[in-house]
Amino acid sequence: MVTTAPAPKSDLMNVTEKNVEPSDKHVIAHVDNNPNPISAEDAVIEIDDVSFSYDGGKTNVLNNISFNIPAGKVTALIGPSGCGKSTLLRCLNRMNDLVDTSEVTNGQIRIMGQDINANEVDPIELRKQVGMVFQKYNPFPKSIYDNVAYGLRVQGIKSKSKLDEAVEKSLQRAALWKEVKDRLNSSALGLSGGQQQRLCIARTIAVSPKIVLMDEPCSALDPIATARIEELIAELQDEFTIVIVTHNMQQATRVSDRTAFFYLGRLIEYDDTTTIFGNPSVSQTEDYVSGRFG
């Protein structure tokens, strides 16, 4: 990804080297990378000096990441492939637990003030509060109704009226109700790709999470379906805190309030989206958002 533009890479290496000096690590993180930080009071997710490894600590794919994600806003994570943005996202609801040897090797992730990797945290309870929408829409091969009701059912809700109500509300919130209300019992796999992804969003918000993580939710969709998902994100942000990973920089400018730019497992810059795309403080960010590499 960097072969087309070798110069920015070397610039970036300088930043990287500065970052690993232990003494002024935090100073650099605050001065250079995070000029406009979110205070702990406004933050719903606090990422504090987090390093993460997939192979039990041999190599880190995330290095000393620190930033706060504000409540009730849309935060975009951008960066070239392999920069660790999806990995970070999957740390936030501990989906990385599925990989046996994965491990947060340093730092803390606090959600609503609680260290989520602490022993007393039940990942199942965490995931009820921190929902996730995946890159490839993945409805179960069940009916539309059963898909949306799935999360509530596994939590033990059996009452038909409660489920009906939640399914309708979630589908309406996901702007899908009108399209599917007459065929709730037909298979979810009969829907178009965009509809399936909105169904996955409905399924996620049906369990009323506080935070919704979206891992490149539009990468498998055409532009029209993408536009609908983006509208949906805009509507959902007054109810949920949304963290979205995206490859599409225009999308980040359209949907997000804050943007974090990652490169090679490091946070390069985190600021208001308008600043990141208009007037970034780190030159690597500018190179990336203006398309000079990545």
């Binding site: 599925l98 199942i124 009820k128 179960f140 799935y150 596994v154 939590q155 996955c200 399924r203 369990v207």
Partner: peptide, 20 residues
């Protein structure tokens, strides 16, 4: 994706295996 979706919705491992 089935396993991930199920677990991300707060299913336990056994619920995930049994239903998804």
């Amino acid at each position: 994706g089935f396993r991930e979706a199920s677990l991300a919705l707060g299913a336990t491992k056994w619920q995930c295996i049994r239903t998804a």
